[in-house]
């Protein structure tokens, strides 16, 4: 123990005593001091221009985005925004209720299977019961015929319409998109969908809506093919949470956030793990770097021109 402690404490030994000599060496080894003045000036100008253009592009990108006729959603303070914060699974459970009772009339959730809900929003028994409420097509059986059977854990969540054409025909030509990846698929998805669901209002003067269109300032150009479907008390929650419009919208968005990012909680946990591992390995890496460089930094090169030699 004493020996290894001494080794660690004599850490300082690894420090090279480079003073002016080392700096001098760096200076001598550098090739830039052979450049002509013009070349240096040219390169400096080039660097400044490139940096300037990048800064300008960044500033333009960050400035007011006023090209589209659309309201930008505010950033809400979601509970899952912290670097270590998980999704709220009580909210996810209510969000599934909202999807099932409201959104599933028009929107599919094609990339989610019932089994994905197990251990996230419901127990296995509950999900089996939920799946059994659906009728899914299976087959072919012995006679080559397709038949309907109650859903199983392994089935994907059945879609409301058999295909896009049927969906359009039922919704005045507008296609209700699949909701699985809607949060990741839209810029600032969670705030956008929340604002969209709660943001319906009367159209301002000068905006004409076609049959089956509804005004929503958060939708590009305002004319949305989806009617307002979220009101206070639109559903009743099984856990007794008051179903205000904003609560319903928040829960369904949190659920869709999970649908888009099934590994969300795992990722947050990994953040903690990586930070922990990083803190442990940082001193080791620093020590290793010093160890390797100590020879380089302590090496002294001496050049004696031939005429000075005897």
């Amino acid at each position: 123990m004493a020996a290894s402690l001494g080794r660690v404490c004599k850490f300082g030994l690894l420090k090279s005593n480079y003073g002016t000599l080392f700096n001098q060496q760096v200076h001598n080894f550098s090739t830039t001091n052979q450049w002509s003045k013009g070349r240096k000036v040219l390169l400096a100008c080039l660097g400044v221009t490139a940096g300037g253009i990048s800064a300008l592009i960044y500033a333009l990108d960050q400035s007011v985005k006023a090209f589209d006729q659309v309201a930008h959603p505010p950033n809400y303070r979601w509970g899952f925004y912290g670097i270590f914060s998980s999704l709220d699974h009580r909210s996810l459970r209510r969000g599934w209720e909202v999807y099932k009772n409201v959104c599933s009339a028009c929107h599919s959730l094609d990339f989610l299977a019932f089994r994905h809900l197990v251990g996230v929003t419901h127990t296995e028994e509950e999900v089996k019961a939920i799946a059994a409420e659906y009728q899914v097509q299976d087959g072919p059986d012995d006679t080559g015929a397709y038949y309907m059977r109650p859903g199983k854990l392994s089935d994907t969540i059945p879609a409301p319409y058999p295909n896009e054409e049927a969906a359009r025909a039922a919704n005045n030509g507008a296609y209700p998109p699949d909701l699985t990846y809607i949060i990741n698929g839209n810029h600032n998805g969670e705030n956008y969908v929340f604002s969209l669901l709660t943001g319906y209002c009367d159209p301002p003067a000068g905006i004409t809506l076609r049959e089956g269109q509804y005004f929503n300032p958060y939708f590009n150009n305002g004319a949305l093919g989806m009617p307002q479907i979220i009101y206070n008390e639109v559903i009743e929650y099984a856990d007794g949470t008051p179903a205000t419009a904003s609560q319903v919208a928040k829960d369904v968005v949190e659920f869709l956030m999970w649908a888009s990012n099934a590994e969300f909680d795992e990722r947050k946990k990994m953040t903690i793990k990586v930070i922990g591992f990083g803190l442990i390995s940082l001193p080791l890496v620093i020590y290793w770097k010093k160890l390797k460089w100590t020879t380089v930094k302590n090496t002294k090169l001496l050049f004696t021109p031939r005429y000075k030699r005897q």
């Binding site: 914060s85 998980s86 699974h89 009580r90 946990k269 903690i272 793990k273």
Partner: peptide, 18 residues
Amino acid sequence: TDKIFEQVNQGKLWKHIK
């Protein structure tokens, strides 16, 4: 890591409500 994660997200995880 699990300890810290569950501490930070007390009451939000499936584990806490199941």
